[in-house]
Design a protein around this nucleic acid. Structure first.
Lengths: 150, 150
DNA sequence: TAAGATTATATCGTTTACGATATAAATGTA
DNA sequence: TACATTTATATCGTAAACGATATAATCTTA
């Protein structure tokens, strides 16, 4: 009897295209981020700091769904690049407060054009604006849902 | 003048929820894959081999959008686990052919229930079936589109 | 207040990703 | 046939991710 393993077929997975598109999208940022001499996860951390100013490591982690085991080394690299400052809170010596240096703040000027460029690159694809909006909505719902149970 | 950097705000990014959902989804596989003693990328490689049987490294890479710099070490680890065999093609000594061992083939039996379990976990979320189908369609379109330009 | 629990980072080890480059086999061409 | 080019893997270095654990500060509560 011919057993049916269709649910294990690559084209029936939801997870695989998710994984692939995430990696491909990150790669699209490559050339732009290279100009700023930062990586994609570093860019995400800077997005948080540009938007919210001084934040603790765990606050950044809450927003990006990352923990100190990932963030600490990443933040140290941003510190080496002189884009951020790391200092212990005086109120609570356990927490480390991350703030932008002038240089890190200024980098925002150079970054501001990136989202537009990424959108342009996506546009050539066979995906409409309304489809993209639906897509983002679903993504965010998924993110919220998954966040709960992990 | 109050400058507007809204396009750099985290909630306006498409890339961030994509990145986050991809990571969260991978984590959902964690407990199930742990039972099989494999990682998520290793699982993807096995999906390819279960579906297509013997494949060259580059063939696997074509399907998963990965290259030898990622696959070679990963495949060596699968070989160490005795789930696959790696042998040079006699027709073309450059290509390495990857095939399943009996043990690797048998692992399919244990894996076959995983997709169902993942779907169940997703279902509790506020995402409908039709929404999920739309979502997958968009993902695959995006994947195809992005694949072209990278 | 002293001891135990909790919290915030940090460290460690393993496994991806991936750009750049190396190596060796196969192919194209003068 | 020689030699350049292309192709298929592999290696190297760097930077994430992340589970597990360590460390130190704070909080709880007996």
């Amino acid at each position: 009897m011919d057993e049916n393993y269709e649910n294990l077929h690559l084209e029936n997975q939801l997870c695989f295209p998710l994984y692939a598109v995430s990696r491909l999208t990150t790669k699209m940022y490559g050339p732009y981020l290279e100009e700023l001499d930062i990586t994609y996860p570093q860019y995400l951390v800077l997005l948080v700091l540009w938007q919210y100013k001084e934040q603790s490591v765990s606050n950044i982690g809450q927003k990006l769904l990352l923990e100190s085991n990932t963030l600490t080394p990443l933040l140290k690299r941003l510190e080496q690049k002189k884009l951020i400052l790391r200092k212990r809170s005086v109120k609570d010596e356990r927490t480390v407060l991350i703030s932008l240096t002038k240089e890190g703040e200024n980098l925002k000027q150079k970054a501001v054009c990136i989202p537009e460029k990424i959108i342009q690159s996506f546009k050539t694809d066979t995906i409409s604006l309304s489809e993209a909006i639906e897509f983002q909505k679903t993504l965010i719902k998924l993110m919220e849902g998954l966040k709960e149970k992990l």
